[in-house]
Structures are given as C-alpha cells and as structure tokens.
Amino acid sequence: MHKKEIHTSEREVVIAVRQLYKSFGSNHVLRGVDLDVHQGENVVVLGRSGTGKSVLIKIIAGLLKQDSGKAVVLGEDVATLDRKALRNFRLKIGFSFQNSALYDSMTVRENLEFPLLRNSRNLGRTAVNKAVQDVLDDVGLLHTINQFPAELSGGQRKRIGIARTLIMRPSVMLYDEPTAGLDPITSVEINNLINEVQQRYNTSSIIITHDLTCAKATGDRMAVLLEGKFARMGSFEHVFETDDERINSFYDYNFID
C-alpha cells in the first residue's frame, strides 16, 4: 500500500510558495502559506473543508490572485505574468478540477481535443486522433470516446478530466480531490493512475484530498493545512505522530473501524 520512499529534497524546487495570503472580504483563507514541491515529487495537501486548499492551487495555476506573498512555479512568478505569458506557462500545468469541469456541450473526444487543437495547430488529424486514443487508453476509457459528459459516471468524469490535462503532457499536475465521492475500487484506480503519471512523465504534483488512503498511496510527502497555514509537513507517519488534536481527529475519522 505504501509508496516506496524517494529522496527528493536535493532535487530542483519546481513549486515554491512563500508567505501566501488570500482573503475574500473578511474571510481570511490563506494566512502565510509556505510550500516547496520538488521535481518528480507528489505532495499531498490535507485539510478540512473550507480551509483554502482549492484556493491555494488556483493561485498556483494563476486562476486567482493572492493578496500578498509569492507563488513561483517552474521559475515563473505566476501573479506577474501577463495574459500571453500566462498562457505559455499553463501549457506546462495540468489542473484536475474538484468537479471535473468537463465541457457539457462536447463529447469526450471533443473535450480532449479542445486544448490540443488550439495549442498545437500544425498537428495533423491522425496525430490528434492518436493522442486522444492514447490518453483515453491510459485512463481505460477508450469506449466512452463518443459519449457526452452527462452520460458518464462521476468516476469516469474524473478520469476524463485527468486525461484532458495529460494530453498536453504537463510537467506539473494539480489534482483537486481526485477520489472524492468515488467507491474504494475506483479510488484505487485513480491512485494508481496518479502514480503512473508521476513515474512515466516525471511530473511534480500537488494532490488535494480528504481521503487518507489516497494520501498514503500517492503522496511522497504530506502537508496539513490548518487555520490558513501548513501546520505539519513530512512523511505520512511523521505528520500523524503528534499530540495535536486537530490533526489526529482527521486521522481518526478517516479510519473508523
């Protein structure tokens, strides 16, 4: 079940978040977040609902702007990029949304082609078809190619959402609750997919989850978001070796036997 340990600390830092602050009105969500993600590393972000996990990765992807602090990703200070630079930067980022965010009006094939056709305009029809089929094969859903998102199950939608980002071969992946609301078997399939992506393409990832099985299976390192900042970081065992009730209860509620 446990991932084999990799020593990433001496590798290059791909995502460097420093003293990040973000509020919505009087709702102070992020209050001084620091985080390093190294090349080829899967970092799991744990935290209760509403602690700002989604907000954090949206800032990293440039979808939201922080009030202060910095998010430097692949050497770029994200908040300072203009529209064009941001688009170039995003070619290297994959973002899997909490609710999949598939395009309702398009089939699975059109969903997958959408970023590809617009970013690699000189790609021929056969190359596009092959890319679509390859990535669908990777997520095991080749048979859904002509279906609409409304016809898919939640787990299938999640996998198509991941496939849609993988088709651009990103070097950084941001997963927002990839296993939420899925049955245990599908969850394990998604966990395996996340690990396969890491190994095959050497991506660096942030994985947001409430699901400790997923955390244990995919994460090289855990980070617990508590009251606007990371309260604990390290291996799975290290993170939960604490007297802090707020962190332990998280563990207890996940494994009620």
């Binding site: 949206k58 992807a61 440039g62 979808l63 688009r87 170039n88 995003r90 070619l91 980022i93 973002f95 949304f97 909490q98 609710n99 965010a101 598939l102 395009y103 309702d104 959408f114 970023p115 617009r118 970013n119 849609r164 980002t165 651009m168």
Partner: peptide, 18 residues
C-alpha cells in the same frame, strides 16, 4: 453562467486556451 459556476471557463483558461 453555468459554464462559469461549474468551472468550465476556468478549465479552458488553465488548459492554455482562450
């Protein structure tokens, strides 16, 4: 509006499309 609130517009944005 529904594409906005279901984050489909954000999804287009982060996939480097316009």
């Amino acid at each position: 509006g529904s594409m906005r609130v279901t984050e489909q517009i954000d999804a287009m944005e982060v996939s480097a499309t316009n």
